Simulated scan of single mutants.
Amino acid sequence: MFGRRAGLFAGAVIVACMALVGSGALGGALSGRAEPTGAVKEVVPNRVMTWNLCNPCEASNVDRAAEIAEYAPQVIAVQEACAPDVKKIRDYLESLFGLVYHVEYGSVLKNWGRCGGAPWNPGGYGQALLSAAPMTDRVNVEYPDGGSEDRGYMAVTTKVGGQSLRVFNTHFAERRQEEVRAEQARVLAKEIARHDRAIVLGDFNAVPDAPELSPIWALATDTDPQCRPASVGVCKPTTEWQSKFDYVFLRGITPLRHSVERSSYSDHYVLHSDLNLT
Rank of each mutant, 00 (worst) to 15 (best):
I14Y: 03
A16I: 11
C17M: 12
A19M: 15
G22R: 13
G22Y: 13
G24F: 14
G24Q: 14
L26T: 11
L26I: 02
G27I: 04
G27L: 09
G27R: 08
R33V: 01
P36G: 11
G38E: 13
A39H: 12
V40I: 13
K41R: 15
V43M: 09
V43Y: 09
V43I: 12
P45A: 08
P45N: 05
R47M: 08
M49N: 08
T50N: 03
N52M: 00
N52Q: 01
L53G: 06
P56R: 07
C57T: 10
S60R: 10
N61Y: 09
D63K: 12
R64W: 05
E67H: 05
Y71R: 15
P73Y: 00
Q74W: 07
V75Q: 05
V75F: 09
V75N: 02
A77G: 15
A77M: 14
V78K: 00
Q79H: 09
Q79R: 06
Q79L: 10
C82S: 02
C82A: 04
A83C: 09
P84R: 15
V86D: 02
K88H: 10
R90D: 06
R90K: 15
D91F: 09
Y92R: 11
L93W: 08
S95M: 04
S95P: 02
F97P: 08
G98L: 04
V100M: 08
